[in-house]
């Protein structure tokens, strides 16, 4: 029992750092780069992925024994696409500003390789509880990374975090950080920093 408990916690925390989808596995990079021009956009994208990934993992894990092996990928894609549609329509109805800011990147969650990857690597092979824990851990890792990335870019590009003024008035915003090149540069530096921290921790 206690062993099981420990490994459940591990299942959850591995997504936060050891197997962080963005920083360690380089999955789901398109939304990571595209929507993180502010912390709030990063957070909303993360939450949208959290909902989609957890629900798809739940469904796939329940049906894992009856899905024929040959058609598993199309099955996963249809399940994911269904939940993405739900997310897309819900956001458009309840949070029109967020839906507008994220634009076509909400429908594009369907081709986020991280979600398909989790179904293939985990949910289709593990019991329901474990799959949900895994999905939650992974998507929280994803959300955290996106929020941090968004916060860094927003801080340097506009002097704010979550639209709160942080930098002094005299700070001249680095426009480049909220434009596309800033996304690549910041993510590159973050992955490099993650590699460095990992090497230091292991040593």
């Amino acid at each position: 029992m206690s062993k099981n408990k420990v490994s459940l916690i591990k299942e959850f925390t591995k997504g936060l750092w050891d197997e962080n989808p963005v920083l360690r596995m380089l999955l789901g990079l398109c939304p990571t780069l595209a929507v993180t021009n502010s912390a709030i956009n990063g957070l909303s994208m993360g939450l949208a992925v959290l909902f989609t990934l957890t629900s798809s993992s739940l469904i796939i894990s329940i049906f894992r024994k009856i899905i024929p092996k040959e058609v598993r990928i199309p099955t996963f894609i249809v399940v994911i696409a269904t939940f993405v549609t739900i997310t897309d329509l819900t956001l458009a109805a309840k949070f029109p500003e967020i839906s507008k800011a994220l634009g076509p990147f909400i429908p594009l969650i369907v081709v986020n390789c991280m979600i398909l990857g989790r179904q293939e690597a985990f949910a289709s092979k593990n019991p329901v509880g474990r799959s949900i824990i895994d999905a939650l851990g992974m998507s929280l890792g994803f959300t955290l990374t996106l929020t941090v990335l968004g916060a860094i870019r927003e801080l340097l590009g506009a002097g704010t975090i979550f639209t709160l003024q942080i930098m002094p008035e005299s700070f001249a915003p680095w426009m480049i950080m909220i434009l596309p090149p800033g996304a690549f540069l910041t993510l590159g530096l973050m992955i490099g920093a993650a590699n460095w921290i990992n090497a230091k921790v292991k040593a």
Binding site: P180, G182, F184, G188, G192
Partner: peptide, 23 residues
């Protein structure tokens, strides 16, 4: 390339420079 930046990180940074050029 600095050791921790080999592979993906340096690729991202180069892509950033390319994106700058394309701007």
């Amino acid at each position: 390339v600095p050791e921790y930046f080999k592979g993906a990180p340096i690729t991202m940074i180069v892509a950033g420079c390319l994106a700058l050029a394309f701007m």
